[in-house]
Design a protein around this nucleic acid. Sequence first.
RNA 1: GGGGCCGUAGCUCAAUUGGUUAGAGUACCGGACUGUCGAUCCGGUGGUUGCGGGUUCGAUCCCCGUCGGCCUCGCCA
Length: 594
Amino acid sequence: MYRTHTCGELRKSDVGQTVTLAGWVDTYRDHGGGLFVDLRDRYGKTQLVFSSDSGAETQQLSRGIRNEDVLQVVGKVEPRPDGTVNPKLNTGEVEIKVEKLTILNKCKTPPFFPTQMELPGEDLRLKHRYLDLRRQQMQQTLLLRSRIIKQMRDYFDQHGFIDVETPILGRSTPEGARDYLVPSRVHHGEFYALPQSPQLYKQILMMAGYDRYVQVARCFRDEDLRADRQPEFTQLDMEMAFCEMEDIIGIIDGLVQKVAKDVLDIDVTGPLPRMTYDEAMERFGHDAPDLRFGLEIVDATDLAAEAEFRVFRAVADAGNRVRGICAKGAADKYSRRLIDDMTSMVQDDFGAKGLAWFKVEADGTLNSPIAKNFTPELLAKFKERFAAEPGDLILIVADKFEVTCKALYGLRKKLGAELKLYDPEAMHFSWIVEFPMFDYDAEEERWVAMHHPFTAPRPQDVELLDSDPGKCRALAYDLVINGSEAGGGTIRIHDNATQQKVFGLLGMTAEDAQERFGFLLDALQYGAPPHGGIALGIDRWVMLFGHLENIRDCIAFPKTQRAADLMTDAPSTVDRKQLEELAIKVLRLDEVKK
RNA sequence: GGGGCCGUAGCUCAAUUGGUUAGAGUACCGGACUGUCGAUCCGGUGGUUGCGGGUUCGAUCCCCGUCGGCCUCGCCA
């Protein structure tokens, strides 16, 4: 037996026992005659004491102990002498007088120590992930992740959901994200695709009568990475038959309450607040607004239309929008220089033509390079519209609606963080509903599904599919936590005719649709029940519930921004023989580009 | 594909306007020390300044390219 106890469990009540512990050397303090070692495992730390009492042989062996060595010790639990209790440790009232030491494994001097104060560079952490995962912070996060997933599994189990696994090797579907492809050895020139989500399989399960399905599903999307995006990620995927949007939302409201209570001890009152997509875009410029703070977007297009200022007038006259935000008390926090930086941001990142600004002076006048273009009366109206007071900073973007949304969303996010408009520990949960069915892709001159092509239109909007698809709203709902999309779902189309019509609107011919999704169209004709579901982004839940800034910290073995695993060095080239079996020839770069 | 930041000892960082021998803390090695808990004290080893090229009398510093990491726009139904 390697150990009788973990390094986190011994207390004063255990004094007198002879115990065996095993773990890593967290730190050691060598006093010559006596040596203290904090032995660590994922449960905690326990202080070991080596002295002449340990015997000459053991004491001699103990002198070679270094950080991160793996030890096993046998010894007696003793109370610490008066004045040497360590209140920082749960085990701080006791120590082990070591009688026998076994060095199970030495540790080479590592590139970094899991215990060091300054975090090493992320590339180093990823390369030596086994060391990084020893860090307490990482262990806490993976524990949190495990706990959230268990809560989810328990919850859905209690509500009668069946866990069904769906294939990892599937069929490529050109809609949506880029697929990860897997070549077939048996069928030369043909490929499987890794699932972007189990979407179609779970719909088929509904048609098969498994009316409550759940799965912790790995999903793959070959797109560029971000701080909150990995090429493979995990979803809590669920689907229900004979359900309406309210049923799904109700179930998830309950889950949110349960997880919030369990992991953060927060009482979330249900039902969670809802906002329509249009309202979210109008008030916050984004479909996943951070509702922990105000700083809402204010429309001033009508006022702009009265202005002498040609830039505003032209935008208003062209049917575009003049909108802005008013940051309370921010005028003296943002110098000309910082405002210039924000101007560059809205121009370079969001395609805005510029950023207009006003600072409200102590006497109430508006200070701005463009103020001279406005009558005092109009300036007063702007001030009133933005409810601006002395010391406030008004930022205005005049552009197409979409551009004002993006730019003001970006500014709001930046100002919210910089001005500390919210408590970083706060949690805000809400639903965004009534999404449009389609977005118009000007480049490809066609409609694209906003959610996915299996989303059902609202019953009252069905006829808009023919007359005005852009106005058609979907039975879609996104769960938003602190300005992050934490989940999204829809009620699905469950009849063949509507599904065919939507495919048609997306520019697919009947033949295309049959080739790509024939199995779905077939299944829809063999007794498909009404159904719908949702998928929750588990990695993001961990990020949000753990107040972490980065999705890589929520995943045991994540990929870098270039989608590489620095520990295993994946992806890698493969043997010529492997390629030959697959009938694959790798082209040179110049051969690809032509 | 575009924009930005970063890369100096094993690690975290510093190095004046481009200036001559590239420093500190820590780790590591050796020594001292029986109540420490970020132990302390003394001594020591350790550098292709990511890589390649250029400008210059002289480059960690400026320029170009490249590799790697991060942030971001596009992209992500």
